[in-house]
Design a protein around this nucleic acid. Structure first.
Length: 904
RNA sequence: GGGCGAUUAGCUCAGUGGUAGAGCGCUUCCUUCACACGGAAGAGGCCGCUGGUUCGAUCCCAGCAUCGCCUACCA
């Protein structure tokens, strides 16, 4: 009876036929709730993709890595929890819904705040789940029934709790200062939401005339339009050119205002003209200078990025900044105050969401204190990493992490948009008479809506209109998703403590600061415990030129299209194989195609096995009377299983994938299956199926779909119909390594030598060759005798004789090629027509051997080497040299014989 | 400006103080009853450059070059 004859397999594997249904099955799986589960736990939270997002190749990599870990850990007996979810992406989502409304011809502001928020929730209900279905298509074995959203009830509660706690402990405060402002998104941004773009700008030199006397100071600036906000010009206190002018006043060009000349040591006399216009309202450095010198702060910017109406902006008021620059430069020129324009490359800060130039803008915002002297969030986070409680993998990222954490600034968390977590702060609107006491001015911060102003008792309370930075809620993700705060509820508390801290976080390095660092700070602050033990940091996926993939470049590889054409398994395996630590992944479709072929190879191996007789029984032990090929493949399987365990424990997905690929294709398919064709004794039938089952289990975390499908045909029956997802991962068991090695050095090496001979001498593969084997000892003869059936079939030779010692030199009338083999030699009998070809081949081979011998002998002749090199190295050299000399002797004799025959 | 990383086959990348590896591509041959998304054989490398340490360096050290990334108040 053949294996599962009624499950005939197509000639070519078509992933689409099996993947969709399997993905659906996996997505429907539910956790089994065990009260007393003795298994160790392995938990992860998914880095929540942006709810507006569609699956891109970066998500595919991130999720593939996690899913591979999850399946591997599951199969290795862990109680695995993988919490999925999405984040509410405040600015991005607001932009999406705004655009949608604009298309409908509606003004989003006119909807009012409540109306707008309703619209966003509607949008989320209809279109917000796209990426989640796409993750499922990739095979993500998440615990989908625990899916979370950063704006859901639990997360919102967690956000308010944390905010209040931080506020009460003085770690959240409100302040009026310069912040990064995006005039397109019309909101404040945190430092790291500003990206710096190298820009070819200009350095303008502008003359500021002295007030009431002759003379001028020329300042150099990249932003001439901000001169309307200047409140001083600063020079270095020891700059000889300007020292006499310090304290005098200047006429601010294009205005009626006058500003002082001040001295500040921060000014570099060597740059530009050595004189700097100081604009405390529009530049972070100038803000600091302004504070030192108590300069007035002049704001000339409106929230939408235009020049405001002030006493100075005059005719420029209402102009956007770019236009204002052109006009001001032109007017300076007309007034003969422009002293030069030079090309100047510098970095301009732009909004990471919309690429609008970010303006420093004076406003009142909420901040998280990062470095409170008594309670430094940053310091505690750094200590956790330094102590080794948290491992960054690869370790090289630690330097980067510390570098950033060491000069971290306070985190601006308020955003002037509507979609997000409202800040849980209220302001007193006054008592019954509409009056408010001076002491009512402070915010009332509370988890729930307060009833009345604690100072004056007024019930007229107005909530802060800002919302929190999305990353604030993301920072709570590892514990908020596990049910924090639990209110001491028994079951919830047990659950939280069972899975927190999570085991591993898999994320990409570009959000190390945005997210990972903040999760560590918040986890330690709220839970008094790290949020995860390992952080596996993976690379970005780039195109084959190393460029970032982007729609505008048109170089995106769409994972869904790849899945449709090559299968999710091929995509996953490609990403895993290329995920070597600390390197970007330069993805090409050719590579994906290669692993599609690999899946097909496995598929066809399955088809072959299906045609073989089925074993009567499957026993767990290695059979005593197994064939040499069986012994060999079992040994190699064990080595591979061992290598995969090692690699996975070190997060070396690339090494694990390579080990599996190498074994399945080049050992199992190339050699073992060919040996099986030679003849299938009972034990081989059993080993064949057992090995294939082990391959399916071993490969499942890497290629879940095809393995699960084939498991249904080849494995499930023996395992009580259990899904491969729940099957135990193979473990390495000790086997006879010597037998495996001999199989390779004797059988495989001999076949390869004969094939090599055929190739070099252009002997048709169909031509059967006659051979004689002469061995050095009886043990070798015994081994080769066992291997003969394989050698004859795989090399297409017939063996005339096999014996110990050489009976006679080959007969002169025939062209005989002697091949050195392990522990002996093999004569291949050829017809006279090959004499010339053989002479060529032998000369070439001898040349190669000579080069090799020269290299070894050079070392041998070096007295220092013989004196200082370790014994093992010298011994190896001796062995190599002996072997070389023997080979050379065989070939030389052969060549002499061939030459002799040619002369006749 | 500072920091980090990279430089290995035509391409994309592993790797090791002692004879340099893979995948894809390339050349030749093979339509052999699992697979042409296949099989067999093969070509192809001063392991970026210059020094140093060492019996021995692609690997360790220093410098240089080129390319990336992160970061920064030279306006």
């Amino acid at each position: 009876m053949n294996i599962a004859q009624d499950n005939a397999l197509e000639k070519v594997y078509r992933p689409g036929d099996v993947e969709v249904a399997l993905a659906r099955n996996w997505a429907c799986r539910k956790r089994e709730q065990a009260t007393h589960d003795p298994r160790p736990t392995f938990s992860m939270v998914i880095p929540p993709p942006n709810v507006t997002g569609v699956l891109h190749i970066g998500h595919a990599l991130n999720v593939t890595l996690q899913d591979t870990l999850v399946r591997f850990k599951r199969m290795n007996g862990y109680d695995v929890l993988w919490v999925p979810g999405t984040d509410h992406a405040g600015i991005a989502t607001q932009n999406v819904v705004e655009r949608q409304l604009t298309q409908e011809g509606k003004d989003w502001r006119a909807l009012g705040r409540d109306g707008f928020i309703r619209r966003v929730w509607e949008w989320r209900a209809t279109s917000g789940g796209t990426i989640v279905t796409q993750l499922k298509r990739l095979g993500a074995l998440c615990d989908w029934e625990y899916e979370r959203f950063t704006m859901d009830k639990g997360c919102s509660r967690a956000v308010r709790e944390v905010f209040v706690k931080l506020y009460q402990e003085g770690l959240i405060y409100k302040d009026k200062r310069l912040i990064n402002w995006c005039s397109h998104c019309q909101t404040a941004l945190s430092d790291i939401e500003v990206t710096h773009k190298e820009t070819n700008g200009h350095l303008y030199k502008i003359a500021y005339p002295l007030a009431g006397e002759d003379g001028e100071i020329v300042v150099a600036t990249t932003r001439p339009e901000t001169l309307l906000g200047d409140t001083a010009v600063a020079v270095h206190p020891e700059d000889a050119r300007y020292v006499a002018l310090i304290g005098k006043r200047l006429r601010l060009p294009l205005t009626e205002s006058q500003i002082p000349i001040i001295a500040d040591a921060a000014i570099d006399p060597a740059f530009g003209t050595g004189a700097v216009k100081v604009t405390p309202g529009h530049d972070f450095n100038d803000e600091a200078i302004g504070k030192r010198h108590r300069l007035p702060v002049e704001n000339v910017l409106t929230p939408d990025g235009k020049l405001a109406v002030t006493t100075r902006t005059g005719p420029y008021a209402g102009e956007n900044m770019a236009k204002a620059r052109d006009r001001i430069v032109a007017d300076l020129k007309t007034a003969s105050l422009l002293r030069g324009v030079e090309a100047h490359a510098h970095a301009v800060g732009v909004c990471y969401r919309c690429a609008t130039v970010v303006e420093p803008y004076l406003s009142e915002q909420w901040f998280v204190r990062m470095n409170d002297p008594k309670n430094s969030l940053a310091k505690v986070a750094m200590e956790a990493v330094r102590r080794g409680d948290i491992h960054l993998i690869p370790k090289e990222w630690e330097a980067n992490f510390f570098g950033w954490m060491e000069d971290i600034q306070d985190w601006c968390i308020s955003r002037q948009i509507w979609w997000g977590h409202p800040i849980p702060a209220w302001y007193c609107g006054g008592n019954d008479k509409g009056m408010c006491l001076p002491s009512c001015k402070g915010p009332i911060v509370s988890v729930g809506q307060p009833d009345a102003c604690p100072v004056c008792g007024s019930t007229h309370l107005i909530q802060d209109t800002d919302v929190l930075d999305t990353w604030f809620s993301s920072a709570l993700w590892p514990f908020a998703t596990l049910g924090w705060p639990t209110d001491g509820d028994g079951a919830s508390e047990v659950w939280l403590r069972r899975f927190y801290p999570t085991s591993t976080l898999v994320t990409s390095h570009d959000i190390l600061f945005f997210w990972v660092a903040r999760m560590i700070m918040m986890g330690l602050y709220c839970m008094k415990e790290i949020p995860f033990k390992d952080v596996y940091i993976h690379a970005l996926v780039r195109d084959k030129e190393g460029q970032k993939m982007s729609k505008s470049r048109g170089n995106v590889i769409d994972p869904l299209s790849v899945i449709d054409r090559y299968g999710a398994d091929a995509l996953r395996f490609t990403l895993l194989a290329m995920a070597s630590p600390g390197r970007n992944i330069q993805l090409t479709e050719e590579r994906i195609e290669g692993y599609r072929n690999f899946a097909n190879k496995l598929w066809n191996a399955a088809r072959f096995i299906q045609m073989q007789p089925a074993p009567q029984a499957i026993s767990p032990a290695v059979a005593a009377d197994a064939s040499p090929a069986d012994e060999w493949i079992t040994g190699r399987l064990n080595q591979t299983v061992h290598a995969v365990h090692e690699a996975m424990n070190a997060y070396r997905f690339d090494e694990a994938a390579a080990a599996v690929y190498q074994f399945v294709w080049h050992q199992f398919c190339d050699w073992y299956l060919e040996c099986v064709k030679v003849g299938t004794p009972t034990k081989t039938q059993e080993t064949l199926l057992k090995t294939f089952q082990a391959i399916l289990k071993m490969m499942h975390p890497f290629m879940p779909f095809i393995t699960e499908h084939l498991w249904g045909i080849f494995g499930a029956a023996q395992y009580g119909q259990v899904s491969l997802v729940d099957a135990p991962y193979p473990n390495a068991v000790p086997v006879d390594g010597q037998a495996s090695d001999a199989f390779e050095t004797m059988m495989i090496a001999t076949v390869s030598s004969i094939r090599n001979l055929r190739g070099e001498m252009q002997i048709a593969p169909s031509e059967r060759l006659e051979c004689e084997i002469y061995l050095h000892n009886a043990v070798a003869k015994e081994r080769y005798t066992r291997y003969l059936p394989y050698i004859c079939a795989l090399a297409r030779v017939s063996i005339r004789t096999i014996e110990v010692g050489r009976a006679a030199v080959p007969k002169g009338s025939t062209a005989v090629s002697t091949i050195p083999i392990k522990d002996g030699e093999m004569d291949v009998i050829l017809s006279e027509s090959y004499l010339v070809a053989q002479a060529d081949r032998l000369s070439k081979a001898l040349g190669k051997l000579k080069t090799e011998r020269d290299r070894i002998e050079a070392k041998w002749d070096n007295p220092l080497f013989m004196e200082r090199a370790p014994e093992s190295v010298r011994a190896a050299l001796t062995t190599d040299l002996d072997a070389l000399k023997k080979k050379e002797a065989v070939l030389c004799a052969d060549l002499a014989r061939v030459n002799g025959a040619l002369k006749r």
